[in-house]
Each structure stands twice: as C-alpha cells, then as structure tokens.
Simulated assay, not measured.
Amino acid sequence: MNASPRRKELTRLAAQLFVQEGFDKTTVRMLAQEMGIKSGSLFHHFKDKQEILAAVIEEGTHNALRIARRALESSPADPEARLRTMARAHLETLFTDRNAHVVALFEWRRLDDEAKAHLSHLRDAYEALWVDVIDAALEAGLIHGDRFLVSRFVLGALNWTVRWYDPAGPRTPDDLADELVAMIIPMKR
C-alpha cells in the first residue's frame, strides 16, 4: 500500500463518496471531482476504481488492527475486561473511521478476487483478536455458546451501530461497550 499523505487523503474522500453513492454508482469522474483533480490524474495514484476500493478497506482494517492491539496491550488480563476493551476498541474504530468501515462492511462483496485474497489476511488478523478474547471468556465461564456464533453475533451488533448510534446523543461508546458486555455475560448468582 502506498502510504503517501496525498493518497491517504484521496482514499478518505473516496470512502466518503462510496458511502454516499455506493461503489457501483460512483464513477471515476465523480471520484476525481470529489478529490479536486482531473479524471486522468486519479490514475497517477490508483490503477483503477477497484484499487481505490481496496485501498479504502485496507486503510480502515489497518486502523482497526492498530486500535485493537493498542487497547489490548493496556487492558487488564481478566477476560471480562478484555471483552469490554475489544468492544470499546471496535466502537472507537467505527466512530473515528466510520466511512472506511461502512465501505468494508457493505462493499466487501464488490472487491475482485485478487483484492479479497490480498485483504483477507488483515480481516482474519482482526477477527483472530476477537477469537482470543472470546475464547478466554468462554474458558472462564463468563459467556456460553459456540465461539463462531458468539463472535458473529457480537461483531454484528457492534457493526450495526454505524446505522443507529448518534455520537451527540446521551450514550458514549463506553456505555455501549458496557451494555454489550452486560448483555452477553449472564447475571452472577
């Protein structure tokens, strides 16, 4: 991935346009106009629209990994705290880099096979962080169920917040993380 500041800015603008218009409806001309460059100049930075989509998803996934790893490094070792930490980190990622994540969630299927193969290792690395945290919570008896289903339900619930959560509303991301953990950990008797 070319990490030049200009390419990062173009990737950010593309993510915004993909969210507004959808990948299929976004044209190269629209991208260039949004970026304030000529259509031909766009190809100085990217091979084609597919590469722009891949760059948006790659940038967002790198950010998610960085935020989650940093959060886990400073998290207490107990499984409940780590579960809350990962939920909070996931929400931070969604709310600080919203457009890239909405694109990753809803436009992944638009990637060509080569881009999917290239990006799958990043997605898998992120999901592996969740699997480790969920496994520890399962082993500690904090949560119950099938690891695959628990992880899908948790990530699905967290990902859907991009549709309904209002950052200016009364609840903070910490409140959301606390509420999620309270819902999946049975009440202590």
Rank of each mutant, 00 (worst) to 15 (best):
116 K>Q: 12
116 K>M: 13
116 K>Y: 01
117 A>Q: 13
117 A>S: 11
118 H>K: 15
118 H>Q: 15
119 L>Q: 06
119 L>K: 02
121 H>P: 12
121 H>W: 03
122 L>F: 01
122 L>W: 00
122 L>A: 00
122 L>M: 12
122 L>I: 00
123 R>Y: 09
123 R>T: 04
123 R>Q: 11
123 R>C: 03
124 D>Q: 12
124 D>I: 06
124 D>A: 14
124 D>S: 10
125 A>K: 05
125 A>S: 15
126 Y>M: 07
126 Y>A: 02
126 Y>D: 06
126 Y>S: 03
127 E>K: 12
127 E>Y: 09
128 A>I: 02
128 A>P: 01
129 L>N: 03
130 W>H: 11
131 V>Y: 08
131 V>F: 07
131 V>I: 13
132 D>R: 15
132 D>S: 12
132 D>P: 01
132 D>H: 11
133 V>M: 06
133 V>Y: 02
133 V>F: 06
133 V>D: 00
134 I>T: 05
134 I>C: 03
134 I>Y: 03
134 I>H: 02
134 I>R: 00
134 I>D: 01
135 D>W: 05
135 D>Q: 15
135 D>C: 08
136 A>I: 00
136 A>S: 10
136 A>Y: 00
137 A>N: 02
138 L>A: 05
138 L>H: 07
139 E>D: 15
139 E>N: 06
139 E>H: 07
140 A>D: 10
141 G>W: 06
141 G>E: 07
141 G>L: 11
142 L>Y: 04
142 L>G: 03
142 L>N: 04
144 H>K: 15
144 H>G: 10
144 H>Y: 08
145 G>E: 05
146 D>P: 04
146 D>S: 15
146 D>T: 09
146 D>C: 09
147 R>L: 05
147 R>N: 08
147 R>V: 09
147 R>W: 04
148 F>G: 08
148 F>I: 09
148 F>E: 15
148 F>A: 12
149 L>T: 13
149 L>V: 12
149 L>K: 14
150 V>Q: 12
150 V>R: 14
150 V>M: 14
151 S>R: 15
152 R>E: 14
152 R>C: 07
152 R>K: 12
152 R>I: 04
154 V>H: 00
155 L>I: 14
155 L>E: 11
155 L>K: 15
156 G>D: 08
156 G>E: 08
156 G>A: 03
157 A>K: 05
157 A>Y: 11
158 L>D: 03
158 L>T: 06
158 L>G: 01
159 N>M: 09
159 N>P: 04
160 W>T: 08
160 W>C: 07
161 T>A: 08
161 T>F: 07
161 T>M: 10
161 T>D: 09
161 T>G: 11
161 T>H: 13
163 R>V: 12
163 R>G: 11
164 W>E: 10
164 W>I: 14
